[in-house]
Design a protein around this nucleic acid. Sequence first.
DNA 1: ATCATGATTGACTAATCACTCTACAAAAGT
DNA 2: ACTTTTGTAGAGTGATTAGTCAATCATGAT
Lengths: 188, 188
Amino acid sequence: MIDKQTEILKAALRLFVENGFHGTPTSLIAKEAGVANGTLFHYFSTKEELIVSLYVAIKKHLSACMAIEEKSEASLKEQLKNIYITALTWGIDNTTEFRFIQQFISSPYLLKLAPEEIQQKNNKILQLFQEGIDGQIIKNMPIDLINTLVNSHLFGVSQYINQSQLAAQQQENIINSSFELIWDMIAL
Amino acid sequence: MIDKQTEILKAALRLFVENGFHGTPTSLIAKEAGVANGTLFHYFSTKEELIVSLYVAIKKHLSACMAIEEKSEASLKEQLKNIYITALTWGIDNTTEFRFIQQFISSPYLLKLAPEEIQQKNNKILQLFQEGIDGQIIKNMPIDLINTLVNSHLFGVSQYINQSQLAAQQQENIINSSFELIWDMIAL
DNA sequence: ATCATGATTGACTAATCACTCTACAAAAGT
DNA sequence: ACTTTTGTAGAGTGATTAGTCAATCATGAT
């Protein structure tokens, strides 16, 4: 075993998604991670800290994946499409993480996060929205609203793809066309 | 006290949204509802049954509110808009219920529901989507996908409105224009 | 070699919680 | 009036759980 802390987080992720927060005792997490009970509390002083840490870790992972895309020379639409597709692909390739995030943000644990953690650091995308509005490419509305709508859309599509068992071809189709859908919505 | 069962559900709703499922002991629910511990278990044999019952009750309430809208003579777009606005208004007027539903459907309790409970009985809207596709008013795509997208959109807008403190005027604006947004997305 | 620091263990505990049980009260049926 | 059913209460219980602690073990620095 290389890293016990990682093993604990991995086990916790799986169990939380399967059984919910209240359905998974710390003892089970420790057992599944192959560590002793006390070891878990060595790394995370409370169960709540474990849950929040897991969220932060996943968000970090997502941010890392998103950061790869950086092609400023492309058109605004192309740039947004790149970001959109990257995020969507992440959601499809990481269903468990995706479900955990969904569960976490709908739970009261969200309030336990420091406000700056919730804040979208990745304001690159907000910037692009603003550019789009200024350049009269995107409908003039609050960028927070646009952001919320795009996020919801992303969630919806991920959910649809994860739930319905699609052939790779169909899946590819939906991924590609779904950006056009949301674009039709926000574009002038 | 008129109906203890209702009082229990009301207290449970509030506490679950505030503290989550695992953060609210049945004893506290009973206390807040002003009934004895045993009374709770007279009405709901387990905590899980209480949670699921609460979900079903809220869904029933939502359905009742939705059922009022029935104007088949209007255009397809108008009909959809009516349904959309009704749902959105419900989400805004019933934030606690709204948050509970969100929490519930992102939790493993969802799987405890009988499949027919999950199924959208209100397939009126699915019917309208099909009509729209047949009449070449709506883009040709799986109606389940359309449905998911419209629902996500609805969630997003509700969330946005609930979170940001808006003047009644602005709120009204967003409610009205947000349907046009989603319409732009699904319409040909 | 010795020491120090941190990782790891698992038995243990104090508290909590879901749920039970017995008793009683209030209707409701006969 | 009497019996049955249903509602209500709240103390009690056994199981579970988050978190502790004292004791080892591993590692590397001096």
